[in-house]
């Protein structure tokens, strides 16, 4: 069976986490890969914790169940670290990306990550405020995820953000998001 990359997103309703998973899946389609993107549906409330998932593989994806052992955990809202064990099921070689202004070393301690697990931070909320004028951290998160996962290039992600945002938003918002993706790609820190 082909290698499968599994990602688990943790966010809150209204932060664009589901859109982020969708954009990431779309971008990974290139090169003939198989992708999945699906949220865990509960009562839809702004601010409520939610999870979303991605799978990416060169082989057909037949699994239709939540990701329980994520290769990558992406935390869109760091306040969730107080209430949810985001490391649940993460294997020893997992990568963790957290939207935070803090140093990745501090987050590493907070997560009690194993030495073999890699921890990354990016101040996605600040980047979003700078670029879009709103605290919508999903675009910078997608940029950072592209960087740390290495499965998709920056150009591909930018193309897909353009495509999926192009239908709904003004050029100013699209440009802001493209800039946010680029900065997310460039500013992610490992610790």
């Amino acid at each position: 069976m082909a290698e499968i990359l599994e990602i688990r997103w943790h966010g809150r309703g209204g932060q664009g986490t589901v859109t982020a998973a969708k954009v990431f899946a779309d971008a990974c389609l290139s090169g003939g890969r198989y992708v999945q993107a699906f949220p865990e549906y509960g009562p839809e409330r702004s601010g409520a914790p939610l999870r979303a998932y991605n799978r990416v593989s060169s082989g057909e994806l037949r699994m239709h169940c939540p990701v329980l052992k994520p290769n990558i955990v992406a935390v869109v809202d760091a306040t969730l670290l107080d209430s949810i064990n985001v490391m649940d099921g993460a294997p020893d070689d997992a990568l963790v990306l957290v939207n935070s202004a803090k140093d990745p070393k501090e987050i590493r301690e907070r997560l009690k990550a194993k030495p073999s697990q890699k921890v990354f931070t990016v101040d996605a909320t600040k980047i979003a405020v700078d670029c879009i004028g709103r605290a919508m951290p999903n675009s910078p998160m997608v940029g950072s995820l592209a960087k740390i996962s290495g499965v998709v290039g920056l150009d591909q992600i930018l193309e897909d953000v353009q495509k999926s945002f192009g239908k709904k938003f003004s050029q100013k918002i699209i440009d802001g998001n493209l800039e946010a993706v680029k900065r997310g790609y460039g500013e992610v820190k490992e610790g």
């Binding site: 198989y34 993107a37 699906f38 549906y41 994806l61 239709h64």
Partner: peptide, 12 residues
Amino acid sequence: LDGFIISHSIER
């Protein structure tokens, strides 16, 4: 087709 599991999941 299965509700949510397929209806609301994105796949290739």
